[in-house]
């Protein structure tokens, strides 16, 4: 038997530092990727000038058009993808602890669909600025629906959880697609494609700060909650006898995760599977202890989404692939793998 905790603890710092370096390198690298080809040297000169006011000695190395693309479009977008990725992965990790099931994730459980219904509904009714709030209400509603469906008639099992998620997902996305169809392509309504498959194209300097700040606040909050999250994984009885007021914390966490999901979805539509893939991989690197799991998950989620968005930008020339397609291509096979391989099992040992 391997000496797991030593391996994990020893590995943790190395993993964290490596991920941080990879994240910075990924940001720098993916900034050069996009529909318009801009040389790395121009890109970095633009970033240096804008961020640190360092003007290259020689004549301007880049055109105004290049500067606009890099600074006004691509940089905020990459920045947003860093935080959206962190937020999505965090949502997954927290939900998995809260419902004590490694398959919980906002997309699979239909929480994202709830958020998207809330958002489209509030846009349809004309509350332009209340989209995030609408999405929050929608995701809370979906969360309640899934949890009560899955725990109806006894203990919540993996099968019931996934099936309830499927039902809620189907219902909520049908309603929101209906609303979008009703509204046609009128002003302010975004396409079904945006809501169901996600996109970061809307990232602008003036609209990225709100989601970024929310992700930072939620991350800091959950980084402090590792001990309670660990106890939750040990089961209801254990948590209560260890002095944790379980139902209280469970409600708080579900509300925070719903809030975060709502804001992420209202910012960039539904991007599925990130919250499933990232915590799962990270657990195999640093173990299940949330003290290590949460920071690692946040960083790994960022890296994953930075690359997923970069691929979405460049996969097809002159067109964008919705980012949800990229994450689903990576996530769906892994979902099957988890079901089959690790014996989280369809009902057998659960």
């Amino acid at each position: 038997m391997t000496d797991k905790s030593k391996v994990y603890t020893g590995r943790f710092r190395l993993v964290l530092v490596s991920l941080l370096i990879i994240l910075v390198l990924s940001i720098l690298f993916t900034l050069c990727l996009g529909a318009m080809k801009i040389s790395p040297s121009s890109t970095y000169n633009i970033i240096l000038e804008k961020l640190f006011g360092i003007t290259p000695g020689t004549d301007s190395l880049f055109t105004d058009a290049e500067m606009n693309i890099i600074w006004k479009i691509r940089f905020p977008r990459v920045l947003l993808s860093v935080f959206i990725g962190a937020g999505l992965a965090l949502c997954g990790a927290i939900m998995q602890a809260t419902v004590q099931n490694p398959m919980a994730e906002p997309y699979i459980l239909g929480i994202s669909s709830g958020a998207s219904l809330g958002a489209t509904f509030s846009i349809f009714l004309g509350f332009g600025s209340g989209t995030a709030f609408g999405a929050f209400v929608g995701s809370i509603a979906a969360t309640l629906a899934v949890i009560s469906l899955a725990s109806y008639g006894g203990r919540m099992t993996s099968v019931k959880l996934v099936l309830s998620g499927m039902v809620v997902n189907a219902l909520f996305s049908a309603i929101s697609n209906f609303i979008i169809s009703l509204a046609g392509d009128s002003e302010g309504t975004m396409s079904i494609k945006f809501w169901t498959m996600g996109s970061l194209t809307r990232a602008k300097w003036d609209n990225i700060w709100f989601p970024i700040i929310i992700v930072i606040i939620c991350s800091v909050f959950f980084l402090t909650q590792y001990r309670i999250l660990n106890t939750m994984l040990a089961g209801d009885e254990a948590a209560i006898t260890l002095g944790i007021n379980l139902s209280f914390y469970r409600k708080i966490y579900m509300v925070v995760v719903s809030l975060l999901t709502g804001i992420l979805v209202s910012t960039c539509g539904i991007i599925g599977f990130v919250g499933l893939i990232i915590p799962h991989i990270v657990r195999s690197l640093v173990g299940a202890d949330h003290r290590r799991l949460i920071p690692t998950t946040i960083l790994a989620g960022s890296i994953f989404l930075v690359w997923a968005d970069a691929i979405a930008r460049i996969l097809i020339t002159n067109a964008e692939v919705p980012i949800g397609i990229i994450t689903a291509l990576a996530g769906a096979p892994l979902f099957v793998y988890i079901l089959i391989k690790t014996g989280y099992g369809f009902g057998t040992n659960n």
């Binding site: 797991k4 905790s5 994990y8 004590q100 099931n101 490694p102 402090t224 909650q225 001990r227 309670i228 660990n230 106890t231 994984l233 040990a234 089961g235 209801d236 009885e237 254990a238 006898t241 260890l242 002095g243 944790i244 657990r283 173990g287 299940a288 202890d289 989280y344 659960n350």
Partner: peptide, 28 residues
């Protein structure tokens, strides 16, 4: 309490499990 319910879906080390016993004595 030592109860009969001790199923676990997640992979903790033995030390991490026993350390959970310190939970009520430690602040957040």
């Amino acid at each position: 309490v030592v109860s009969q319910m001790n199923n676990l879906n997640f992979d903790f080390t033995v030390k991490e499990i026993v350390m959970m016993g310190r939970t009520p004595h430690l602040n957040i």
